[in-house]
Amino acid sequence: MAWASGSGRRFAGIPWRVIASDAAGRFMLVCKAACAVHVFNNYVCSIALVRGPSMLPAINVSGDVVAVERISVRSGSIGVGDVVLLRSPENPLKIVTKRVTGLEGDSVTFERDPARGDHRRKTVLVPKGHVWVQGDNVYESRDSRQFGAVPYGLIQGRAFCKIWPPKDFGRIEQKL
């Protein structure tokens, strides 16, 4: 009995109220930090791992980490030559990296399928609110030549800087 009352006193002696408020405060701090990260990633800048052969030589097959900025997408200032990340129109769960080669109202000329030796040229007009995207590696890229112009709303961000591997660190140039 003496032991029980002793442990009870000890149990009551622990400052539960302080511990709980401390824990809640820390939990809130973590939540706030997560929210801040989300807002920064979604509205300002984030990083992404991109890989695949379609953007050779700008981006390696094995995968590069690039910095992606979101501001120019929101302000509508994506231009011809920018490397963009967009949600694939064929699979919404996939994000692909391509280069914008035409904006709305532009006419784009491309070779139909150079991988299979089809070098006939074709010219199309990009419809309103759409962009024409193509991989730099025309031989191994699934892009607007297959699925047509994509709505501007699918663009997620503009890749402007390679940050990994360190030897390739540098700006991603805007080019045609």
């Binding site: 919404p92 309103k128 609110g129 759409h130 709505p151 709303g153 663009i155």
Partner: peptide
């Protein structure tokens, strides 16, 4: 998260010809 929808859902989406 998984882009799972059913027929008859009411959805909001960006207009394909004007992203704003």
């Amino acid at each position: 998260e998984r882009y799972k929808f059913s027929q008859g859902d009411v959805i909001i989406f960006k207009a394909p010809d004007n992203h704003k």
